[in-house]
Amino acid sequence: MATDIVGNLKVARKPKLSETVVDAIREQLRSGMIQPGQKLPTEGQLTEAFGVSRTVIREALATLAASGLVEPRQGAGVFVVEQISTAFGALTSEMGTKDSIALNVLEVRLAIEIESAGLAAIRRNAAQEAAIQEAFFEFDDLLLKSEPTGPADLAFHRAIASATNNPFYVEMLDVLGRRAIPCDVTSPWSTEIVQSDNYQRGLQREHLAILGAISAGDAETARNAMRLHLTASQKRYRERLQARQSFYKSASAVPSNK
């Protein structure tokens, strides 16, 4: 009996201080608060800002450097690398129209996020699960206020990626950035339809299935829920393209009054 109780207990691993610093700096990079090529504050300034030791800051910077996000320069300091944003900026210009961009990005997300959902269900700690839930409810709150939900949508998927405890899942989403979520009215890949309340509520129902599976620790169901969510998004986008083509065909067939 006692062994059964112990077996059912789950002790959430408290994030290391260096991981907290890494996550904070990654978020500033993602949001644009820290720009490519920019010099980071000194170790002393970071120590004071985060209220941690220099050892923690050095460990965090080493993690960021290993991830290819920053690079130390002898005698000059630590700088954000420029190559990542430059390379993907060039890639964006070659991807085609905003419609093809959205479909291409969804295809990439399918390859990344199905497994990230499964790993999150297995590896997430209490704080990471809370972050996923917080992003979910933030989406809901913005929807009720009729405000753009894109940032909360991206935060939801990013929190899942973070819960894998594999930083490269987060980096891939950060590289995609706003391209990953076309439903925000501020996104250049948005359309009128994806901004509709009905569309947004459909997304939230799919998010709920993903959240429920992760919270239950059910990796396979989490993978399936994420697969259904992203393939449904592909289907919806293709249907919108077909509807737009049909509209233009019918409009062009109407005789001119001139």
Results as ranks from 00 to 15, higher is better:
61 L>W: 03
38 Q>M: 12
60 A>E: 04
156 F>S: 02
155 A>T: 08
67 S>V: 01
113 E>H: 05
49 A>P: 00
88 F>K: 05
154 L>D: 05
44 G>N: 08
51 G>Y: 07
140 D>E: 15
96 G>E: 11
108 V>A: 15
89 G>A: 08
93 S>K: 14
142 L>S: 03
81 V>C: 09
97 T>G: 13
82 E>Y: 05
139 F>Q: 08
128 Q>Y: 01
136 F>C: 06
42 T>I: 00
153 D>Y: 14
95 M>Q: 13
69 L>W: 12
70 V>I: 15
44 G>M: 02
136 F>G: 03
137 F>E: 14
122 I>E: 14
118 G>Q: 01
150 G>R: 11
121 A>G: 09
105 V>Y: 04
149 T>Y: 05
92 T>Y: 09
93 S>A: 15
83 Q>D: 15
77 G>W: 07
152 A>N: 04
119 L>C: 03
48 E>S: 10
79 F>N: 02
112 I>K: 00
125 N>D: 15
50 F>A: 05
39 K>I: 07
63 T>M: 11
80 V>N: 07
60 A>S: 14
64 L>T: 06
124 R>A: 15
110 L>E: 11
115 E>H: 11
104 N>T: 14
44 G>V: 01
40 L>P: 02
69 L>S: 07
139 F>D: 06
57 I>C: 03
37 G>L: 09
75 G>R: 00
160 I>P: 01
83 Q>N: 14
102 A>G: 01
64 L>S: 05
101 I>P: 01
98 K>C: 04
129 E>R: 13
157 H>K: 09
73 R>V: 14
79 F>C: 03
116 S>Q: 08
141 D>T: 15
38 Q>H: 08
104 N>Y: 09
127 A>N: 11
125 N>Y: 03
94 E>S: 12
142 L>D: 09
100 S>Q: 13
146 S>T: 13
156 F>W: 11
91 L>G: 10
53 S>V: 00
152 A>E: 06
89 G>L: 06
101 I>L: 12
147 E>M: 13
151 P>L: 10
77 G>H: 07
49 A>R: 11
111 A>K: 11
138 E>W: 10
113 E>N: 13
132 I>K: 05
151 P>H: 10
110 L>P: 00
119 L>Y: 08
110 L>H: 08
98 K>S: 14
68 G>A: 06
154 L>N: 03
141 D>V: 10
114 I>S: 09
126 A>M: 07
61 L>T: 04
142 L>Y: 09
140 D>C: 11
109 R>C: 07
83 Q>A: 15
48 E>L: 08
134 E>K: 14
58 R>N: 07
39 K>G: 01
145 K>E: 15
118 G>Y: 01
77 G>A: 08
136 F>R: 10
99 D>W: 12
125 N>Q: 07
60 A>Y: 04
67 S>I: 01
155 A>G: 06
139 F>N: 03
88 F>D: 02
110 L>K: 14
158 R>F: 11
64 L>A: 05
50 F>D: 02
44 G>H: 02
117 A>Q: 02
94 E>V: 13
58 R>W: 00
55 T>E: 09
47 T>A: 03
52 V>A: 07
63 T>R: 13
87 A>F: 12
